[in-house]
Computed example of a mutant assay.
Amino acid sequence: MKTKDLQEFLERGYLQTPYIIIRKFPTVYMQIPIHRWELKEHFSEGIFILPVEEEVLGYEEACHVTFELYHQENPEADMCLVLDKDRARFIGKNGSGFDEKGGYKYGSVPWGGMLLSCKGEVMRVNEPHYVI
């Protein structure tokens, strides 16, 4: 399957952490980049963290809050927040995103299958969902 040049996707904010992965179908995933607000003029796709959230909560916790709000808007989706190449936080269709002790539920970063952009473009097939 033909995919566009990776550099084009990188320039649009894809394939680099943090991002949200939504499981559309078995083996088909959509990536939604998460950006700092000050990059809003540079990127047209993805979700942007408000400066006040980052200032009050810190960057990583603001990513968690953004992820939770996105899941509330899309409760029927299985999704994860990928914070780095080794750490992903999962929320299932039932909204369960916490472990038995009330902490975030982490797992390994999804890999493989077909990875789509927000616009439905095929970015990667059977490869890692990140480059950076």
Results as ranks from 00 to 15, higher is better:
residue 81 L to K: 04
residue 55 E to G: 10
residue 127 E to R: 13
residue 124 R to F: 05
residue 67 F to H: 03
residue 118 C to L: 12
residue 8 E to A: 14
residue 61 E to V: 11
residue 115 L to T: 08
residue 63 C to G: 14
residue 85 K to W: 01
residue 97 G to S: 14
residue 69 L to G: 06
residue 46 G to A: 07
residue 99 D to C: 03
residue 66 T to A: 02
residue 72 Q to P: 01
residue 102 G to C: 11
residue 126 N to Y: 00
residue 100 E to D: 12
residue 48 F to A: 01
residue 103 G to T: 06
residue 39 L to S: 06
residue 35 H to I: 09
residue 119 K to I: 00
residue 66 T to E: 12
residue 94 N to V: 00
residue 118 C to Y: 05
residue 60 E to I: 15
residue 111 W to Q: 13
residue 46 G to K: 02
residue 107 G to E: 07
residue 106 Y to M: 02
residue 109 V to G: 01
residue 62 A to W: 04
residue 56 V to S: 09
residue 16 Q to W: 02
residue 107 G to M: 10
residue 44 S to H: 12
residue 56 V to A: 11
residue 124 R to I: 01
residue 36 R to H: 10
residue 108 S to Y: 04
residue 79 M to C: 15
residue 72 Q to R: 15
residue 63 C to Q: 00
residue 93 K to I: 09
residue 112 G to F: 07
residue 75 P to V: 01
residue 41 E to Q: 14
residue 80 C to A: 13
residue 27 T to I: 03
residue 111 W to F: 14
residue 65 V to S: 06
residue 101 K to V: 06
residue 106 Y to C: 03
residue 84 D to T: 02
residue 19 Y to L: 10
residue 15 L to N: 10
residue 82 V to E: 00
residue 129 H to A: 08
residue 23 R to H: 05
residue 88 A to G: 07
residue 2 K to F: 11
residue 102 G to W: 02
residue 30 M to R: 15
residue 59 Y to E: 03
residue 96 S to K: 15
residue 114 M to W: 00
residue 27 T to A: 06
residue 89 R to I: 05
residue 69 L to C: 09
residue 51 P to K: 07
residue 81 L to N: 11
residue 8 E to F: 09
residue 129 H to G: 07
residue 58 G to H: 04
residue 13 G to H: 08
residue 38 E to I: 00
residue 48 F to P: 00
residue 112 G to P: 03
residue 36 R to N: 12
residue 110 P to Q: 09
residue 57 L to K: 14
residue 86 D to L: 06
residue 120 G to Y: 07
residue 96 S to G: 08
residue 99 D to I: 09
residue 111 W to I: 00
residue 35 H to D: 15
residue 114 M to S: 05
residue 11 E to N: 15
residue 48 F to S: 05
residue 46 G to P: 13
residue 87 R to S: 12
residue 115 L to A: 09
residue 23 R to Q: 15
residue 97 G to M: 12
residue 32 I to K: 15
residue 64 H to T: 08
residue 27 T to V: 00
residue 83 L to R: 11
residue 101 K to E: 14
residue 50 L to Y: 14
residue 41 E to P: 10
residue 112 G to V: 04
residue 84 D to Y: 01
residue 95 G to I: 00
residue 108 S to P: 04
residue 116 L to T: 10
residue 40 K to D: 06
residue 86 D to R: 12
residue 79 M to L: 10
residue 84 D to G: 04
residue 114 M to G: 00
residue 81 L to H: 11
residue 46 G to E: 03
residue 30 M to I: 08
residue 125 V to S: 09
residue 98 F to N: 13
residue 13 G to M: 08
residue 63 C to V: 10
residue 78 D to L: 02
residue 116 L to A: 07
residue 98 F to D: 09
residue 57 L to S: 10
residue 107 G to S: 10
residue 67 F to I: 07
residue 43 F to G: 10
residue 108 S to L: 06
residue 56 V to W: 10
residue 68 E to V: 04
residue 49 I to Q: 15
residue 45 E to M: 05
residue 125 V to H: 06
residue 47 I to K: 15
residue 90 F to L: 09
residue 105 K to W: 02
residue 104 Y to G: 11
residue 100 E to M: 07
residue 88 A to C: 12
residue 95 G to Q: 14
residue 42 H to M: 00
residue 27 T to C: 01
residue 109 V to P: 03
residue 79 M to D: 07
residue 8 E to N: 12
residue 71 H to S: 04
residue 81 L to S: 08
residue 53 E to R: 06
residue 9 F to V: 04
residue 110 P to D: 04
residue 82 V to R: 03
residue 102 G to E: 02
residue 131 V to D: 11
residue 68 E to W: 03
residue 32 I to D: 05
residue 50 L to M: 11
